[in-house]
Nucleic acid binder design. Structure first.
Lengths: 191, 191, 191, 191
DNA sequence: ACTTCCGGGACTACCCGTTAAT
DNA sequence: ATTAACGGGTAGTCCCGGAAGT
């Protein structure tokens, strides 16, 4: 099956990434073998390596995709507290545990592999900037950029990462409480 | 001479753990082989296995030790903001990067291995309770336990974990700013 | 238009063989992958397999072609010592190293694969007979076949093979000296 | 089984080399997998890799050993023609075919891998010098070194390599005839 | 009709955690 | 208490068939 369409390739890639996502979050990055991924995707070894040159590259691709901790979709007019609530929900038990686990794995791997670290940093920076902008808007009429907004966004996002790790280890945390405390750092909603 | 032997054993164990700490933080848990550990410790294969029945057990021992993210030493009368500052400093670049990296690795592994998750949870719970108590004291004279204190402690600790991950990936975060924002969640110091 | 197509096919085949010759001599038979050949020829995988049913068949085709060790072109009236000199020059450094290397590779493979061994034997026999005939002519007027001629031809040709191997391994051999010694086995030139 | 004697290690090494020798000569260097060697030696994968860091290193070790083409044992007072006869017999059918095949393989590999080429050159040089010395002695009473001796030795040895390749490809060559022709290059025996 | 090139799946060299023999 | 060795596992490569586009 040659000369395959761009869409076909894209779909295939996504299929691999999603299968990898699932297996990685269950078994962990290191303990997942390429053979496991062959089983999970239903593809062959050569098939997978046609789309990803190495396991590391596949891991990076999974990390670049929505990994649960943070979300690539930026809803334009979302107030900061809703954004935080949404991000929180991605890694909240029970549905979010898989995401949380994968997130923890990826951060662990990123701590060791510079290539992954780049991906992680880029994701964090983008989301941080977005959140900072949302905070700025929510603060009021003036549109002066305040460096404090970025700092707050950094802290809030770091907290979400830590929250994800707690969820991943089976710690029983109440997302509502987390959200309530975190709200103290965000500007008050206009009534 | 059982006493000497006991001390000797303890020292040996610690020596292994410290060497493992160093190698793990540099190479990662999975990528560190037992042979690497043999090299790092200067001991023999069987020597290490005399103290730790498996690699997993050794990892758990390293995780139980002070890994930088959180600290086993509870200074009794420490005010909450100082405690937070101290914890923050453990994983701050440049000296704390190794700790941060190891921490990220351990959280990642804990997300996958129940045995390690138990260790991680226990560490977090103990530290959370300690911080909550410090917050309660700092709040004022009344010694009524407020569940809000525990929630705040959870959030602050989660933030520290996330902060560690950012440091581990080489993100350039300013600890002072982090601490300042985090301070807003803690009771104001009495002047 | 069968004639054009035929020529076209022939040209394509030759093009593949020449590219393969180059890559094989540099990387070795076994270490050269079909993908390498695709890269070297600029053709596609299937394109190559249209001309050669398998890698082994392609190797055989390369071996059948002039591989440098021996030469397919039989110059009719060539005196034996000139023929030997010419053959020697094919595998002499620096231009002949590639030929020498490929020759060594092919003899190695022929030692293992009967199909290739047939090719190698056929080539050797043909050249041996040719050289023997040249020797016989050079010996003098009488045209009696002397079995000794064939033996000498065998030995001289074997020497050339060994000479090629020495060149292929980077041994610094002087072709002039080789030729001089070898000349002692050949009939003296008429003055 | 720790702290094994030097002899034990040496014996083990030799055992591996000999098994490898056998399999290599039958299947070829490239087509012999490490698993084949595991089967042939009766050892385990890890066992073999304890003695040889890589397949290439094992190949080199096999090549360094007596590979049949040339012989490491230098019999001191051997006249040149006897030495040549002995070397010839090592790669003569039927017993010597395996040696001849392995020799062809090694020369082929040496043409590609510099490390092996070093080994091949060293072997050739040593044997060439020995043969040259034997020739010099056989030439007569005067002990003046003649560069011609080395050239003759080079040629004779090259011929033996080529002879081995012919044998390896199943060519029906008569060693006696080869030896007779080759004798013309060597000094006449005193009667 | 014909080339392209995706994909299959077996295989490769090498490594790893661990045990057991010395 | 050292270390040889086990044996299953790892990521990644290879040759090639055959389906999909032009």
């Amino acid at each position: 099956m040659p000369k395959v369409s761009q869409q076909y390739r894209e779909a295939r890639r996504t299929q691999i990434i999603e299968a990898a996502h699932k297996v990685f979050s269950r078994e962990g990055l290191a303990r997942t073998s390429m053979t496991d991924l062959v089983t999970a995707t239903g593809m062959s070894m050569g098939g997978i390596y046609r789309y990803f040159a190495s396991k590391e590259e596949l891991v990076a691709a999974v990390a670049e995709g929505r990994d649960g901790t943070v979300d690539g979709d930026f809803v334009a007019a979302e107030p900061p507290d809703e954004l935080v609530a949404r991000l929180l929900s991605y890694v909240t038990a029970p549905e979010g545990v898989a995401h949380a686990r994968l997130s923890a794995q990826i951060w662990g791997e990123a701590a060791i592999r510079p290539a992954l670290a780049d991906v992680a940093r880029a994701r964090h920076t983008a989301l941080r900037d977005h959140l900072a902008a949302r905070i700025q808007v929510a603060r009021g009429a003036d549109d002066t950029a305040d460096p404090d907004d970025a700092d707050v966004a950094d802290v809030v996002l770091a907290t979400l990462v830590g929250y994800g790790n707690l969820v991943a280890t089976g710690f029983d945390v109440d997302p509502a409480r987390f959200q309530r405390i975190l709200g103290r750092l965000l500007p008050a909603q206009p009534p």
